[in-house]
Simulated scan of single mutants.
Amino acid sequence: MQSFIIFVLLLDFISPCLCTRLNNIGTQNSIYNVMNYGAHGDGKSDDTQAFATTWSNVCNSVGMSTLVIPAKKTFLVTKLHFSGRCKGKIHIQFEGKIVAPSREAWKAGESLISIENLNGLTIDGNGQGGADGDGSTWWQCSGCQRPGVLHFHSCNDLSVSNIKITNSPRSHVSVNMCNGATFSHISIDSPPTSPNTDGFDISFSSNILVKDSNIKSGDDCIAINGGSSFINATGVTCGPGHGISVGSLGKTRPNDQVSNVNVRNCTFIGTSNGGRIKTAPDTDVSVSDVTYRGVYGTCDGNIAVNLDCSSAGCHNIILDQINIKSNQQGKKVSAICHNAYGTATNTIPSVPCLLH
């Protein structure tokens, strides 16, 4: 689907340390640079232990601490695990580049960078930092348990900004059991042929905002999975990829619930879908209270609107101010429905198949 779309979908992230005294606010910010703990930053030496030692010092520091991953350096690691509970607030100045090891050196199924049990963490790459997962060595291995690059678990009041994640073997950024996280100015880039490389994979989390970001992947730009609520995407450019998706619901848990999802001012370019809700085949997942409003652009196929619901039905579906046309001049597009109940106003194409 090649289009520009704006819509709302409602369903119900001491070495001898350099210390700086900030007299104006009476706090201390302790700086911990990984280069001071043995990191080489040459992209060839294994810097995993240097990062681990740095993190231990940061986590045990009282007050405000900053972990510096310096710019113009490339750090090869096999796995980073940043875990709380820490004694103070932590900021990660993520201006260098982290790269994955060979597939043989990367522990199967484990994310390259795991961050868990931290409150109030901030990460800022200043538009320079990020990580590369070397996913091309994994994508053709269908039997491999492919890992992701950046994983957040049980992190509350999280802020992540200005970083780039590329070529993940699987999902680029996964968010699990987090409450209150803002991801802004995130660049995600993998080729459209890379399998299951979701940009963001969100599960069992609430109050998550992804904004002003650019996501190119081989799967969903943002996947919102069961147990999630109050998920917001705004100002996201998606494509290539599969669009922004809720689900698949009911795939692993019959009582999957997702609510209060809002997608606004997002652009989809060369995606297979725009905004969609996915349920596992042969399940009776109920979908209700969904609004698509202010959606416009072009599509590649014959079907612009597809409301294919299970036997439980989709209820209170509202389509309003929809204008989707074919990208081929003169070709008509249509809508299809199955067990879908709702209303359609000011809609091109017309959706007469909605039940009342």
Rank of each mutant, 00 (worst) to 15 (best):
S159G: 12
C221F: 01
V210L: 13
P191R: 09
S217C: 14
G243W: 02
F204D: 09
S159E: 13
G250D: 05
I165T: 03
G241K: 00
L150N: 06
C141W: 11
T166F: 03
L158Y: 12
G180S: 13
S203E: 13
L150A: 09
D134E: 12
S174R: 09
S205Y: 08
D220L: 00
I215Q: 02
L150T: 05
H172F: 09
K164C: 06
C144V: 04
S205D: 09
S184F: 00
R170Y: 12
S213K: 07
L158K: 10
H151T: 08
D134Q: 13
Q140S: 15
W138D: 00
D220P: 00
S171T: 11
C141L: 13
G235Q: 07
D189P: 02
P191D: 11
H153S: 15
G247N: 03
S217L: 01
N156L: 10
N225T: 05
F204V: 11
D201M: 12
S161F: 05
N179W: 11
D198G: 03
S174F: 05
A223E: 15
N156M: 10
G218D: 03
T182P: 06
A181H: 07
I186H: 01
P240C: 04
P169R: 02
A223Y: 00
T193P: 06
N156Q: 13
F183V: 06
P254Y: 10
N167I: 01
S184E: 12
H151K: 14
G250A: 04
R146E: 00
S142R: 10
S154G: 09
I165A: 02
V210D: 02
K211G: 08
H151Y: 15
N179M: 11
S228W: 06
V246E: 00
S194D: 04
T137R: 11
C178P: 04
M177R: 15
T197K: 00
P191A: 12
G247E: 02
S248W: 07
N156V: 11
T137F: 09
N176R: 13
Q140K: 15
G135Q: 00
F183T: 03
